[in-house]
């Protein structure tokens, strides 16, 4: 039996996951929690947020995020991909910054607008 705190929402349910019993989850208050508990043990994923360089004196950085969760083990690799990015404004929310991170199907996208 493994105990976890659910991180899907701020409620932070305390989950019990039974590895012996097909990863059965208890202690959750919603379906998302159940899925999370199972996935967290089988193949944990995270959304990564960071910044990239921008060619601008006013806004030297633009915030970005992965548009879907990526495997937890790929987080540092994903971060490395951002080091070589240099954006030039205008930038729009949702613009793809890095495509298909480590073949995960997830992209890094800009999370704010930056005008010239």
């Amino acid at each position: 039996m493994k105990t976890l705190i659910c991180i899907v929402c701020p409620r932070g349910c305390h989950l019990n996951i039974d590895e012996e019993n097909d990863y059965k989850v208890t202690g959750h208050h919603c379906e998302k929690g159940e899925t999370y508990g199972r996935n967290e043990l089988l193949h944990p994923v995270r959304v990564v947020t960071s910044t990239v360089k921008v060619n601008s004196d006013i806004h030297p950085r633009c915030p970005v995020k992965t548009d879907q969760s990526i495997p937890k083990d790929d987080v540092f690799h994903a971060m490395k991909l951002l080091d070589s990015v240099l954006l030039t404004p205008p930038i729009r929310r949702g613009d793809i910054v890095v495509e298909n991170i480590a073949d995960s199907g997830a992209h890094f996208v800009a999370t704010r607008d930056l005008d010239t």
Partner: peptide
């Protein structure tokens, strides 16, 4: 802090 932040 929020539990999810302690974990993540």
């Amino acid at each position: 802090g929020l539990n999810r932040n302690i974990v993540q």
